[in-house]
Design a protein around this nucleic acid. Structure first.
Lengths: 226, 226
DNA sequence: CCAAAAGTGTTGTCGTTACACCCATGA
DNA sequence: TCATGGGTGTAACGACAACACTTTTGG
């Protein structure tokens, strides 16, 4: 029973937006992409996740992808999924805005600078002042990523096509804030046939070169890992 | 970065609604509450889940609860959670309506008849013609309930305060469409301390009376059951 | 006494954990 | 040759699966 039409203006009180939490990782840990928001009187020198209005002729998914590209210059995100819809009355002090939030993952920290506001990656451990309800949105997104690492293969969204098992394990360790046993971790990935070895080696620094692996499937798949 | 205000009318093209999939169970299995929709030319003799507009002064959650009560007379639902936001352009042929869908659970099949359209419980195995995208919404809701039975205690939403372990097990069996071993099933529930016995007995028909149990906590809690 | 569902323990298997040493490389 | 991270197997333990008989009641 979705309701109605002829749509008097009174029914169309709300503005619809999307907000997308885009994650990447570097050796330090999980990063979120934020843009500077500088809107007195409420949000001077605050930051927020990229987002914007949904247009009349696009779905929420389309809007999320478009804004990621237009606002933040992020194009190569590998995974995007709907996160939650935030509808608190006062989430935007300027008026009623309902936002469909998304979670996206990218293997790189490269972003194309396009006009507009400053864009930066922040460590999730050390976020700046956030505008609107973006703190809630980001918290929800972090919880989602954490839980999904445990029972899906989404890690592929945060790693390049080829990676070492050390990199993969470090990803799990920094995001989930716990340590794993190297041998058991590898055994699990192999027994689930989640990764396959290429024959290539990657040398890094002064230590023994590691074999490069790739995910056997690079689409979202639920498989109990932990 | 939720956007903007002063809100010219052009920005407010969409109508916001909620749609709620309310489940209950009887001995046959999972039931969904549907209301008759009779809107020529598209949806003659179709059915849909209860829902309606979000008001300017309420959140999506509030709207979902209100409509469950106002439209369907369902008051005693025990659990409600946001499911997914559906925003396809043509989901409502009369105009752009974005719907925040909810999933709710109730232990009883009682509903208070209030004015308006006919309201009925349908088995999820045998749904009628559905209006709008309600087939998608219901499918999504069924998947969600199934997966949540496996790793949370939401079953409490579908059972009365006191129930027998046979009832609980049958609930799992009909919803997940598989059989469980009685002893292992009970062992698991006890070892997780999910249920506690009252001393009361329930006699049913001509067989041995079963002890009544209750959930040790009746709030949503994630615990690996299966 | 028969039918129907409730209730109760043990054993084998398989997955998870814990654990320590050698290898290849660059400095 | 030393420091760094890569790579490998095994044994103990615990969780899960399989399995059958006795109990209580109403008819």
């Amino acid at each position: 029973m979705t309701k109605t039409s002829k749509s008097p203006h009174k029914l169309r009180f709300a503005i619809l937006a999307t907000d997308t939490v885009l994650f990447s990782k570097d050796q330090g840990g999980l990063k979120v992409l934020l843009m500077k928001v500088d809107r007195p009187p409420f949000y001077v020198q605050h930051w927020g996740v990229p987002g914007g209005l949904i247009h009349p002729k696009e779905t929420a998914d389309e809007a999320a992808k478009r804004h990621l590209w237009e606002k933040a210059g992020a194009k190569k995100f590998v995974h995007i999924e709907q996160l939650y819809t935030f509808s608190a009355l006062d989430r935007d002090p300027r008026g009623r805005v309902v936002s469909v939030a998304y979670l996206a993952l990218t293997p790189t920290t490269d972003i194309v600078r396009r006009g507009g506001s400053e864009v930066r990656w922040f460590s999730v451990e050390n976020l700046p002042k956030l505008a609107y309800d973006h703190k809630d949105i980001i918290r929800t997104a972090i919880e989602r990523v954490r839980s999904k690492l445990a029972y899906t293969n989404i890690a592929f969204g945060l790693l390049p096509e080829e990676f070492t098992l050390g990199e993969l394990q470090r990803l799990y360790e920094v995001v989930l804030r716990r340590r794993f046993d190297k041998r058991n971790f590898r055994k699990k990935l192999f027994s689930l046939k989640l990764v396959v070895g290429t024959k290539k080696k990657k040398r890094a620094g002064r230590s023994r070169p590691a074999e490069l692996y790739r995910f056997s499937e690079r689409r979202h798949k639920v498989v109990g890992i932990l």
